[in-house]
Write a protein that binds this DNA or RNA. Structure first.
Ligand SMILES: [Mn+2]
Ligand SMILES: [Mn+2]
Ligand SMILES: [Zn+2]
Ligand SMILES: [Zn+2]
Lengths: 148, 148
DNA sequence: ATCATACTGAAAACCGTTCGCAATCCCAGA
DNA sequence: TCTGGGATTGCGAACGGTTTTCAGTATGAT
């Protein structure tokens, strides 16, 4: 079964190897923001003969082909998600690591206006918010159990 | 002559060694966003017996003491600036690497509102804009000379 | 089916950063 | 001022994520 990303890759004229097919499948099925090791872990479950080096190479290939997008969430490694038509940003729950996606046309417009006022045209931008749930925002301990 | 940052360090009760004094001076005099190697380069000019490891250690110390702030501008390394009362963000000129600082209370408020609507209290955030000057925004070649 | 070419796996290199350790320094107290 | 001992330093090794090298393999145009 040819995955969404695999189809995209073929459209772009990329040579389709077995490992690229598997990685495309993994990324098509992912609904989170896996890092390279995680993609490798999932890929190996489908076909054990995929090396981490190939995953790194393929991620870059797909990124350059605009099929996936690199996401920098502040931990040391690169995370990825399928490239979508609609631009969004991430709110990271620092307690759980949960990632919430959001989009804000007003915010985008404001950012555009700011750059323009400074005499610049935007070619890229990055925005992440780190937060804790409002409910238990009072206790700001760094390591604590959930209440029983 | 005791630098601004050196005074701050003493207030915080940090042991003041020769190399910490030099690094504090370098950072006090900097009006840009140097990375660790750059700080080391400048420090060595004042006192050649400062190792890069000590610069790394001292940057972390000063960061933990809230005397300086780490800035992530997207290139692989950590950059630093003196901690100031007024929060700001950076617009990076992708042509020249020039960094323009800006602040926007409206933008901050909007970001706060977004997080709140998602049920979160912000504990940190990151925003950088990458752009090119409006003047020569038309030609988007990656490597080109200034016009003569 | 053939063949040039692009791709792969494994290991080494890379790059920014941190760590382990023995030597040295700083400074509170005498 | 002199000291003792914990903190700090320099050096090199280790680290973690990523890229590269290279010899062998697979791909897809012919
Ligand atoms: Mn996302
Ligand atoms: Mn700044
Ligand atoms: Zn945006
Ligand atoms: Zn802000």
């Amino acid at each position: 079964m040819t995955s969404r990303l695999e189809a995209l890759c073929m459209e772009k004229g990329l040579k389709m190897t077995g490992q690229r097919r598997v990685i495309s499948q993994v990324l098509s099925e992912a609904d989170d923001h896996p890092d390279v090791e995680e993609v490798h872990r999932r890929a190996v479950q489908i076909d054990p003969r995929i090396s981490i080096a190939t995953v790194y190479r393929t991620m870059r290939l797909l990124e350059d082909a605009q099929v996936i997008e690199r996401v920098d969430l502040g931990d040391g490694r690169a995370r990825y998600e399928e490239a979508t038509a609609d631009h969004h940003h991430h709110l990271i729950d620092t307690r759980t690591g949960r990632i919430i996606e959001f989009a804000s046309p007003e915010l985008e417009a404001m950012k555009e206006r700011i750059a323009h006022e400074l005499g610049y045209k935007i070619v890229g931008h990055r925005l992440e918010i780190y937060g804790v749930p409002l409910d238990d925002a009072g206790d700001d301990a760094q390591d604590e159990e959930e209440r029983p």
